[in-house]
Amino acid sequence: MSQQVSVRIDGELCTAAEGQTIYEVAQANGRSIPALCHMEGLSSAGACRLCLVEVAGIGRLLPACTTPVNTGMSVTTESENLAHHRVMALELLFVERNHICSVCVSNGHCELQALAQKLGVTHVRYPYNYPRLSVDTSHPRFVLDHNRCILCSRCVRVCDEIEGAHVWDIAARGINSMLVSDLDRPWGESENCTSCGKCVQACPTGALVEKGRAVEEMTKRNVVVTTLAAKRDAHP
């Protein structure tokens, strides 16, 4: 039995198990912190910075999904400052690559698009980057469109932690970061890929999709991933 810790979330005293993250404890206590790279059943990456929270006594914002709770911790999940930083993080995701929602296979079913709507983002205040990126169609069943990738690494983690194949990695650094399969070979030539499709289901955007889907046709079932993860936890 793990140790119990007491923390305050938005002033409310909450009990949590040692090792739980702020995100988990906040969610268990009815808070909804925005998140993109977090996915139930996978390890946390802290890649998107949407889940930033304030922790009393700490002079910078911390990602709720990677920060474990400590006894006596006091966390704020909603404030003007947080809203400001979350919106900024979201806007920067939009300008980094090419998100043309109107012609995207995931239009209407995309977590990035939905979060922008939820946070009331009607425009982006920064100049768009308009990078020239490739689309990998070499896999017989799936497509990787780098234009829509937000580098959340959910695909990397689901493939490694649930499927056990570890096809994906993120290569390079900063603005040059790029999702690669099998040491940067075309996906279709990957020797590790089992074509299970978990990465496609886990991907929050229109970056990993099934072939043959037209605009608005790509719906995802990430419950597949969370259910599998939960079953494995139950039978270790």
Binding site: F94, N98, S102, V103, H123, Y128, Y130
Partner: peptide, 19 residues
């Protein structure tokens, strides 16, 4: 008032921006 994605993000017309 900027009405619609083209006026706001560049949208489909901006797909030429890489060339």
């Amino acid at each position: 008032v900027a009405l619609g994605d083209c006026a706001i993000t560049g949208n489909v017309p901006s797909m030429r921006n890489r060339f």
